[in-house]
Computed example of a mutant assay.
Amino acid sequence: MSLSIRPATPDDRNTLAGLAYDTGYFGDSASRYFPDRELFAAFWTDPYLRGGLGNLIALRQPDSRSGEASMQPVGFIVGSANPARYRRGLLRAAPLLLSRLGRPDTRRSLRYLLRAARYPGPHASDSLYPAHLHLNVRRDARGLGAGTALLRAHLNLLREAGVPGVQLSTTTENVAALGLYRKLGFRVADERETPLWQPWLGRPARHVVMTRSLLED
């Protein structure tokens, strides 16, 4: 079984959106808290495909004798090194949200958005760590090295672009991801207990922001 990493382009939008949705709830489907798939893509995929930096997709070929058509997407990493541009990308999702408010799946998804606004997580300095990233790997593809390969390649692209540092947001629910980030040099900058996920987890979670300087390598 071979694994390859390539740049993610706007043509990969639906693939990235599907992977993001299928892994968006601590490795499982985001449908539990965000049933509107299209709106989820507008918030978690589209802002990175409009001026993001270091967007990559991982594919595996289960059978080395198979052709290129057999390559299966198993994970991706997306990021932005321009906080203002990223926020503008988020705002572009507002018209879609308003146009879909009559839909039951959108109204149920709105519960998460309102809670996220009410309970924001910790955030590191944008001047020291202007880039941020999201990494998602399908559960059935973990252990293949896709997460490590994606993160290493992404960090290299940020260095080449002269980005001084990168941050990411996660929770202590993502035990495997925390281990990967620490292995590649990320450190916890701040953490706090948050009730954001309580309606779905049944308990508060611990929100973590991790940082990685790219000037020290």
Score class of each variant (00 low, 15 high):
Pro104Trp: 12
Asp105Met: 02
Asp105Gln: 14
Arg107Thr: 03
Arg107Ser: 09
Arg108Gln: 15
Leu110Asp: 05
Leu110Arg: 11
Leu113Arg: 09
Leu113Gln: 04
Leu114Ile: 08
Arg115Phe: 01
Arg115Glu: 04
Arg118Trp: 08
Tyr119Asp: 09
Pro122Trp: 10
Ala124Val: 01
Ser125Trp: 04
Ser125Met: 05
Asp126Gly: 00
Asp126Arg: 11
Ser127Met: 02
Leu128Pro: 00
Leu128His: 14
Leu128Gln: 14
Tyr129Arg: 07
Pro130His: 05
His132Ala: 08
His132Ser: 14
Leu133Val: 06
His134Gln: 14
Leu135Val: 11
Leu135Lys: 06
Asn136Ser: 13
Arg138Ser: 10
Asp140Ile: 00
Arg142Met: 13
Arg142Trp: 07
Arg142Ala: 06
Gly143Leu: 04
Gly143Cys: 05
Gly143Tyr: 03
Ala146Phe: 05
Ala146Val: 03
Gly147Gln: 04
Gly147Ile: 03
Gly147Phe: 02
Gly147Lys: 08
Thr148Ile: 00
Ala149His: 11
Leu150Lys: 09
Arg152Thr: 13
Arg152Lys: 14
Arg152Gln: 15
Ala153Tyr: 01
His154Asp: 03
Asn156Gln: 15
Leu157Ala: 15
Leu158Arg: 12
Leu158Met: 09
Leu158Asp: 04
Arg159Met: 11
Arg159Phe: 00
Ala161Pro: 05
Gly162Gln: 03
Val163Asp: 09
Val163Gly: 10
Pro164Leu: 10
Gly165Thr: 02
Gly165Cys: 10
Gln167Trp: 08
Thr171His: 11
Thr172Trp: 12
Thr172Pro: 00
Glu173Met: 12
Glu173Ile: 08
Glu173Cys: 03
Val175Trp: 07
Val175Thr: 15
Val175Ser: 12
Ala176Lys: 11
Ala176Cys: 00
Ala177Trp: 01
Leu178Tyr: 05
Gly179Phe: 01
Gly179Ser: 03
Leu180Val: 09
Tyr181His: 09
Arg182Phe: 01
Lys183Ser: 13
Leu184His: 15
Leu184Glu: 12
Gly185Met: 05
Gly185Arg: 06
Gly185Gln: 06
Gly185Glu: 03
Gly185Ala: 10
